[in-house]
Design a protein around this nucleic acid. Sequence first.
DNA 1: AAGGCGGGGTG
DNA 2: CACCCAGCCTT
Length: 349
Amino acid sequence: MHPVENFAPRVLAWFDEHGRKSLPWQDDKSPYRVWISEIMLQQTQVTTVIPYYHKFMSSFPNVEALADAEQDEVLAHWSGLGYYARARNMHKAAKMLVDEFDSEFPQSVEGVCELPGIGRSTAAAILSISRDVQAAILDGNVKRVLARFHAVPVWPGEKKTENAMWELAEQYMPSERCGDYTQAMMDLGATLCTRSKPQCLLCPLESDCQGRLTQDPTQFPIRKPKKAAKPEKSIQLLVLMNQQSQLLLEKRPQTGIWGGLWSLPELASEESIVLHIEQRFATQVKTVTALLSFRHTFSHYHLDISPSRIQMQDTNLVMEGGKYQWFSLEQALQLGLPAPVRSILDSAK
DNA sequence: AAGGCGGGGTG
DNA sequence: CACCCAGCCTT
């Protein structure tokens, strides 16, 4: 990802021609008004925000008015916008600004970041737009523009990738017209370099855009890796007790799940215990007691386990080779057991 | 590094 | 329906 010359001038020239310049928070770009707009616009689209912004500014025209308001009143103005921590943090920050900062915004990104609800990107937006400070934002729009421009091949949610994109964002931020540049990048992302159907032919960066060279620019930014919903399996595990209070364990094959461990005889969830056992071991079942079912989760799937305790009539079982063996409970607990099996046996003590 | 927070828009 | 949006905070 090397930076490209002329990035900012091209973006700014496009902005002069096509950028948005009459949004409600753009005629008086005081830090307070920009701040409120930025908070409202976090994870929320412009058309949703506009009516809220008007009403809010009418009720709380400056930071003192906001600081003096009751929290209930502030939240009432936020009702329907969602992410209500934004409003609570904002109200708290207004009080901090009045009480501790003499009602003035700090001049640095680090300073503004001290205020609750304001992170690096929002701080940079406020300072660049309201005071032309040379600080870059990295919001969803900028991430999308940069990810496409450089065809960033990995998900930007990863820390390493995000750091690299911050680096790029700072490098492209010009030393002049910082506020216009911030607004321009957001406009580019919001109106041309949109999530779907980007209008590449109108884009000032089209000729150097790596994403444009690919089959489909919308494959950038790479989507968040889906954690494949873990599949669910269910089994029955059987605590087979003989007349000597011994229980039957089965040696698992070396490969596969629980390879080589001693486990309880397993039955598919839908199989009938009595039928299966009497057929398989040629013996009578005396009693069947359902034990508490529980879920065991592996890295790759959920296993719902329904254990049962079965009292056998006699012990003349027809064994298959040496893979079955009777153990006392004490002996069994000394063996290598799968965790859920150990758990079942522990609770049988 | 991952989850929670919310409501609305979009394909 | 899943996914995304002018993110930030907590764990």
